[in-house]
Design a protein around this nucleic acid. Sequence first.
DNA 1: CGCTTAATTGAACATACTCAAAATTTGTGG
DNA 2: CCACAAATTTTGAGTATGTTCAATTAAGCG
Lengths: 236, 236
Amino acid sequence: MKKQISDIPTCVQCTNKSSIFCALSSNEKSELGENKGGNFYKKGQVVFYEGNHSSGLYCVFKGKVKLTKLGEDGKEQVIRFAKDADILGYRALLSNESYQATATAMEDCLICRLSKKNFIQLMEKNPKLSWNTMRLLSNDLRKAEQHLINIAQKTAKERIAEALIVLKSTFGLKLDQKTLDVTLKRSEIAEIAGTTTETTIRTLASLHKEEIIELNEKNILILNLKKLTKTAAIYD
Amino acid sequence: MKKQISDIPTCVQCTNKSSIFCALSSNEKSELGENKGGNFYKKGQVVFYEGNHSSGLYCVFKGKVKLTKLGEDGKEQVIRFAKDADILGYRALLSNESYQATATAMEDCLICRLSKKNFIQLMEKNPKLSWNTMRLLSNDLRKAEQHLINIAQKTAKERIAEALIVLKSTFGLKLDQKTLDVTLKRSEIAEIAGTTTETTIRTLASLHKEEIIELNEKNILILNLKKLTKTAAIYD
DNA sequence: CGCTTAATTGAACATACTCAAAATTTGTGG
DNA sequence: CCACAAATTTTGAGTATGTTCAATTAAGCG
């Protein structure tokens, strides 16, 4: 049962909460939605590439997206995630003209493309939208800096434990309240933690032996969050 | 000849260019400067501490400042620098209430403290100020993400070479067009590159042996920028 | 069912860290 | 300006962590 583009509502009708667009009135939302394009992205499909010229602002209606940057040696590094109601590509509007990262669908997604011009016009009219965008940037910056410290100062095991915690807080758990509500390849976990696939495999096996996590095929269950947090060396 | 607080002009008279406040009219600048406090900070003195409640916005009139975050194990990590006309502590205004990093004077500095309230009021009135602030955030985010990749994927030598290049582009060179216009302890360079003091010393010695840099007491001279760039694995 | 992709395991190796000690520089009070 | 204490830089050697590379097993998919 494949999702259709017609499943995407207009901005006015959009049911997604907690987006930066909540500050907009119905009229403004309708203005935002002019020239809107909704698209279906299959798992693994690229929404936009790092370095490409910015062609608008993306808003995730449904699905999970990872943002990665390419290192000099061709190794990918996950820098951020996006999910329902999150915005992608907004930094390209503000600084440079090109996208700073590559956005890839982690599962089948429905993503809208909004007009750059409309967004900028709305920001000028509605200070709340500017304010929300600034808060968003500010939070992303805080997370990026925290991530930097983690990678710079933690061991591979600590970073992998932290990656699991980040995945939990970003995507949440399934109904059993234990299983991470996202499936990743080992190499993708490695890209978050900034290590190799092999080290990731060995470390996950070690965490499993310590009864901190459970591994069921592609699924990862968090059995002992307290221990996992301790392993990640997070004390705040 | 110690600098005095009286050396600091009013915002209206401030000669610093390329700040986010260039968008302001004289009247607005004067509004910004109400309740302004100028302070002298001695080398090594802390302007504000990570985790402290935000008590305003800082604007560097003259000097060099480093922003650091503390890792779980107590190791400092330099996340950003600020120099003449740069703003500090602006993120605390937007997200959380507390400062996300510790700001320390790298040399004797003159730094103004501006009222939080005035800044926010001005942002609401003048969309250009919001826009500039957003651009600033956006650039900081880009740099932080680039820094993340560097630390995650480069060797210690590459990171140290990169640190020197960052120092050059941030603080520039002295009149000879070779000497970095900033003096740092070896441990501070290590904090930028995310490595240890010993590794930094050995690597600088190695770069010196390769005739890429020259070490004169506390000063670092860049003899061969091309080679240094190559060593840093920067190809763009 | 065969082919491709992903996960796993092992072993050798390298990078960079830790710890300790010595040399040097810097700062401060007399 | 000197002497002494403190901080910083430097060097060495041993070690651990994590990478690389190669080979094997398992899983996914048309």
